[in-house]
Design a protein around this nucleic acid. Structure first.
Lengths: 176, 176
DNA sequence: TATTGTTATACTCTATAACTATA
DNA sequence: TATAGTTATAGAGTATAACAATA
C-alpha cells in the first residue's frame, strides 16, 4: 500500500469552503468516519488538533520562503527587539539555548539575521536582522497577516480577543 | 568565547564555507525576561504555548502510569469503540498507520490492549482493551478529570463551551 | 488492483550533559 | 563560581516507501 496518497485528507488550495472529495469505500470499521467521542471535550486534545491545523496553514502560506513557525518567531522578535542575546530570545520563545544554536545559524546562513559582538559581555551575541532580513520580514508579514485573517475568520472576528485571553491564561500554567 | 570559535560552528559532516560574519559591536539588550510582543496576538503561537502547558499538566498528572496523551487517547477510543482496526483508530486520531504500530504494540506489551483477529477481514486486527486495561482506564480517567477540572478552572468554567467550539472550528481546517 | 499491518528509514524537535571562554 | 554559546547525543514524533498477506 502506502502509495495511495488518499489517506492525507488534502484538498485544493482554494480559500473556499468546499467539501472534501472523500473516497468512500468504507470497509468495516476501517472507514475514515470514526468519531473520537469524549476526546472532543478534552482541552489538550482539542488544542493539539487546532494548533496543528493552524500551523499547517501557516507553513503553507510561507512555503515559498520555507520559513517555519519557530524561525518566523525569531525574526519577528529580532525586528521588535534588536540586540537581544541568544539566551534571551531562546528563553522568551521557550526554546533550549542549545537547540537555538542551529536555528539562529540557519537564519544567519540564509542572510536574514546576524550575530554581532556584544558591547558589554564578550561571551554573548547581540542578535539583529540584516537589511535583507528586514526586507524579507516585511514581505512575509503580509503573508502572515493573510494567514492570521483566515484564522480569525474561522473562529469569527468577535471571538478573537476572548480566544487570545484564554490561551494566554493556559500558557501561564495549569495548577501549581 | 563566542567569537573565536565563530568559524567552526558547522556540524562535522560539512567542511562548509568558513565565513566569518565580522561581528559588529552593538549595545546589549540581553537583560531580564523578554516580552514576545506581537507574537502574543498570533493564533498559532498562542495555541502552541497553551497546548504545551496543558500537556505538561496532563503528563504530570498521569506520571505514575507513564501514559502519554497519545496513548491515553487510544485507550479511550478502544473503551468507547471496541473492535476498531488499527487504521481506523490511527486515522481518527491523525496518526500515520505506520507510526501507530509501535504505539499499540507498547499498549499491548503493557497488558492494557490487545490485537484480536477480525471476524470479517483477515488482514486487519480488531483492537480491544484487556480487563487490566479497563481497570487502568477507570483509575486514570479520574486523574484525567482532575486535570481537566484544573484546565477549566484556569479559563473559567463559563468559557469552556465557547473554547471547545472555536478549537473544533480551527481543527476542521483553515482556508482552502 | 487495493488495503492492512508491518518494517525500515529519515528528518525534525526536544532534552541533557559537558566543554570553552568569558564574567 | 556562574553564565553564554556551543557541541554531541539521545529520545521522541512524524513522514514516506516498500513488502507480504489478504481482499
Amino acid at each position: 500500500m502506502a502509495k495511495s496518497k488518499q489517506t492525507a485528507r488534502r484538498k485544493s488550495p482554494t480559500v473556499s469552503t468546499a467539501r472534501k472529495p472523500a473516497l468512500r469505500v468504507v470497509p468495516d470499521t476501517g472507514g475514515e468516519t470514526v468519531d473520537v467521542g469524549a476526546l472532543k471535550r478534552m482541552m489538550g486534545y482539542a488544542l493539539k488538533r487546532a494548533q496543528m491545523a493552524v500551523f499547517e496553514d501557516f507553513i503553507r502560506t510561507l512555503s515559498d520562503t520555507g520559513l517555519k513557525p519557530a524561525q518566523y518567531s525569531v525574526l519577528l522578535m529580532l525586528s521588535q527587539s534588536p540586540g537581544l542575546t541568544q539566551s534571551a530570545v531562546a528563553q522568551a520563545l521557550g526554546i533550549q539555548r542549545a537547540n537555538f544554536v542551529p536555528l539562529i545559524s540557519e537564519l544567519e546562513r540564509r542572510g536574514w539575521a546576524m550575530r554581532a559582538q556584544s558591547a558589554t559581555d564578550r561571551r554573548s551575541h547581540a542578535l539583529h536582522l540584516t537589511d535583507k532580513g528586514k526586507a524579507l520580514l516585511q514581505r512575509v508579514k503580509a503573508l502572515q497577516q493573510a494567514h492570521e485573517d483566515r484564522v480569525i475568520a474561522t473562529i469569527g472576528a468577535g471571538n478573537a480577543d476572548i480566544m487570545f485571553e484564554l490561551l494566554a491564561r493556559l500558557a501561564k500554567g495549569i495548577g501549581r
